[in-house]
Write a protein that binds this DNA or RNA. Structure first.
Length: 276
DNA sequence: TTGTGTTTTATTGCCTCC
DNA sequence: GGAGGCAATAAAACACAA
């Protein structure tokens, strides 16, 4: 039976010699196991403990008993009956006590493991949250810049239209491929433009865009290469592609379905509402 | 010394497996 | 149906500040 009363434990504190012999005969492997335990200091793990177990007061196990139990637990956190009996015999405990110790030890081990898992998850979450914040910031910067570029394009078209309405205008000239020098000069000499280029550079640095993602032929630090409308448009496309590729790369390395998905697992609002 | 919080040992009830 | 595992909990032992 599984149930033991405290009085029962007193009664069963010692084995009948015959029973002991039978158990030993049935557990040949346990001899090896006992040999392993022989290495431990035997100073206080024998008769005195055994006598103390026989009082009905709850006794703590001795240092050496705990040490031996811990050592056994490291090998395997579950006991087969033979090992349990052998260990109990070796340490002067009842098999029941050994079983209970292992049960409690497993419970403590589980709690610790859960704590570790929780800490790991928490650290991962904090890291994701940080990355998400940085990406949001970068997104904001790039969106603002895109708006500025669009506004500039708008102005440019207005000026082109105005110039094409002049007396020498034929109406067949393509403003896309042949921007007027007036517009070109305005774009390049505009202090906002150079400021924009610096901003673009900064954004690339913020994004940590790898070399292979950026266009090696396009030098953002040099205004000389932004001397036409097409190139201006090209720089916009590169910006867009770089941003897109940055997200694609992140998604490839992302364990979740998508970056958005991963970020939505724990939204910022949910962040502090763990129900652990 | 004592009150209080923590740890360890043990019990109980339920569940699963053979 | 018995054996053993687990979760919840009781109770004793222990640690420590006031």
């Amino acid at each position: 039976m599984k149930r033991f009363s405290s009085t029962n434990s007193l009664v069963t504190s010692l084995y009948a010699p015959q029973e002991k012999q039978q158990q030993e005969d049935n557990c040949h492997d346990s001899r090896e196991f006992e040999a392993m335990l022989d290495g431990l200091d035997e100073k206080d793990s024998t008769n005195i403990d055994e006598v103390e177990q026989n009082t009905d007061k709850k006794r703590r196990l001795s240092h050496n008993q705990v040490k031996a139990l811990e050592k056994t637990f490291e090998v395997d956190n579950k006991l087969d009956p033979c090992r349990k009996v052998a260990l109990a015999h070796e340490l002067g405990l009842q098999p029941r006590q050994v079983a209970i110790w292992f049960q409690n030890r497993r419970a403590r081990w589980k709690i610790k493991r859960l704590e570790m898992e929780y800490n790991n998850l928490k650290a991962n979450y904090e890291s994701l949250k940080l990355n998400y914040g940085q990406l949001e910031q970068n997104k904001h910067i790039l969106t603002t810049e895109l708006k500025e570029l669009k506004a500039k394009l708008g102005n440019e078209n207005v000026e082109k239209n105005m110039s094409s309405c002049g007396p020498e205008s034929t109406g067949h000239r393509s403003s896309w491929t042949e921007p007027t020098n007036l517009v070109e000069t305005k774009v390049l000499s505009d202090s906002d433009s150079s400021g924009m280029n610096q901003e673009t550079l900064r954004n690339f640095q913020l994004l940590n865009v790898p070399q292979d993602l950026s266009n090696p032929g396009l030098d953002f630090s040099s205004t000389s290469q932004l001397n036409s409308y097409d190139e201006l448009m090209h720089s916009k496309r590169v910006l867009g592609n770089a941003h897109q590729q940055q997200w694609t790369k992140m998604e490839e390395g992302c364990p979740f379905g998508s970056v958005e998905e991963s970020c939505n697992i724990y939204s910022v609002d949910q962040a502090l509402n763990f129900g652990w």
